[in-house]
Amino acid sequence: MSTFKSLVFKRFNSNLKKTALHDLHVSLGGTMVPYAGYSMPVLYKGQTHIESHNWTRTNAGLFDVSHMLQSKLSGPHSIKFLQHVTPTDFNALPVGHGTLSVLLNPEGGVVDDTIVTKENQDNEFYIVTNAGCAKRDTEFLRGELQNNPALDCQWKIIEGRSLLALQGPKAKDVLEPLLEKTAKGKTLKELFFGQRDEFALKDGTLVQIARGGYTGEDGFEISVPDEKAVEFAEQLLANPVMKAIGLAARDSLRMEAGMCLYGHELDETITPVEAGLNWVISKSRRNLTNEKDRFNGYAKIMDQLNNKTYNRIRVAFKYLKKGPAARNGVKIFLPDAQTEVGLVTSGSASPSLNNINVGQGYVEKGHHKRGTELLVQVRNKFYPIELAKMPLVPTHYYKN
């Protein structure tokens, strides 16, 4: 069940939070497990993990991601603040567009990965961060605001809204009949990857829809009022090409797509350069002579970027023969089976690649090139792997 197994199978406790869809998950036969402080469905009755995964790749899957932290940043200095805590140029981001970025601590380590969308010309931004990092993100963002009192902006958590991820090649066919055009007459066909806009459901309920997702397929993330979440989910699930999909398949889908999972591929000791996320460091922000314009960890990150002073780099790999999957923490060795050169961060079978075992990890610089053959040590036995290009499975984003 992939690296997700190490995150969720802990002793259940009564203090877990519940999303607005919790009872619906239970009624659908969801196996509920603790995840990021919430009771979440890992799998549904009548589906295997592989079936759920393949269904999403070929049809459409509905994921409850309401545990993610939705928030808003506003005020005249919002961009200045974002450009202090991230390496991304938000001056260049058009209204209605979002981008992946990373929150950086003063040492250049990743506090969290995040999607940030510019909502309007007044520099209001919609931000989604990870549920498991919600407490740390809140402390970090509030702390950075307190440390920069000259910046006139406000950050607040959005309450009372669920977040649903609709993923797969038929996602648009499921969602489109449930929507009216936007106030400006835009249809779902005119919403491209990375864009976000407000649509109305047939009953007039306003929902915010972002095109994108965590699987590598076309899809949408939809922010809907809690009181409408169950009704909306049931309308989506009434379509025969749609199934509710649990977090186990979400993990294997994201791994094939080359996506990071915070706490595995990312943490506060890892820089975006080491994580292979150089593209989130905007080119316009790589030669900043004024220290006031620089983002957290600027000197370290730019030294790594320009002079390759990092010692490790994120890689993907495939097994070259059968064997048990390499999970988080498994050691990576040179072919001599003596010299340790890295650690696995995620691993599972890949349903899209005939169930061969795949994974991600960090290896020492110099051993990171695609095609390099190494070994993973699982249960005191060695299994040959080959480093592979990310994503492991081609993406199908809807771009103009």
Results as ranks from 00 to 15, higher is better:
Lys300Tyr: 06
Lys300Val: 06
Ile301Val: 14
Ile301Ala: 02
Ile301His: 04
Met302Leu: 14
Met302Lys: 09
Met302Ile: 12
Met302Pro: 11
Met302Ala: 01
Asp303Phe: 01
Asp303Trp: 03
Gln304Phe: 05
Gln304Thr: 05
Gln304His: 10
Leu305Gln: 11
Leu305Lys: 14
Asn306Ile: 01
Asn307Ile: 05
Asn307Ser: 15
Asn307Ala: 12
Lys308Leu: 08
Lys308Ile: 01
Lys308Trp: 04
Lys308Thr: 02
Lys308Asp: 14
Lys308Gln: 08
Thr309His: 11
Thr309Trp: 09
Tyr310Ser: 14
Tyr310Ile: 10
Asn311Pro: 00
Asn311Gly: 15
Asn311Cys: 05
Arg312Asp: 13
Arg312Met: 07
Ile313Gly: 04
Ile313Pro: 01
Ile313Cys: 06
Ile313Val: 11
Arg314Gly: 07
Arg314Met: 14
Val315Trp: 00
Val315Pro: 00
Ala316Lys: 01
Ala316Tyr: 01
Ala316Leu: 09
Ala316Thr: 02
Ala316Cys: 13
Ala316Gly: 09
Ala316Met: 07
Phe317Trp: 12
Phe317Pro: 05
Lys318Ile: 08
Tyr319Met: 10
Tyr319Leu: 12
Tyr319Trp: 06
Tyr319Phe: 15
Tyr319Ser: 14
Leu320Gln: 14
Leu320Gly: 07
Leu320Phe: 06
Leu320Lys: 15
Lys321Pro: 00
Lys321Asn: 11
Lys321Met: 08
Lys322Cys: 08
Lys322Phe: 06
Lys322Gly: 09
Lys322His: 08
Gly323Asn: 09
Gly323Met: 07
Pro324Gln: 11
Pro324Arg: 02
Pro324His: 11
Ala325Pro: 00
Ala326Tyr: 06
Ala326Thr: 01
Ala326Lys: 03
Arg327Ile: 07
Arg327Gln: 12
Asn328Asp: 12
Asn328Met: 12
Gly329Phe: 03
Gly329Tyr: 07
Val330Lys: 00
Val330Phe: 03
Val330Trp: 00
Val330Met: 08
Lys331Trp: 08
Lys331Tyr: 05
Ile332Leu: 08
Ile332Tyr: 07
Phe333Asp: 11
Phe333Glu: 10
Phe333Leu: 14
Leu334Tyr: 04
Leu334Asn: 11
Leu334Trp: 05
Leu334Pro: 00
Leu334Met: 13
Leu334Gly: 04
Pro335Ile: 08
Pro335His: 06
Pro335Gln: 07
Pro335Phe: 02
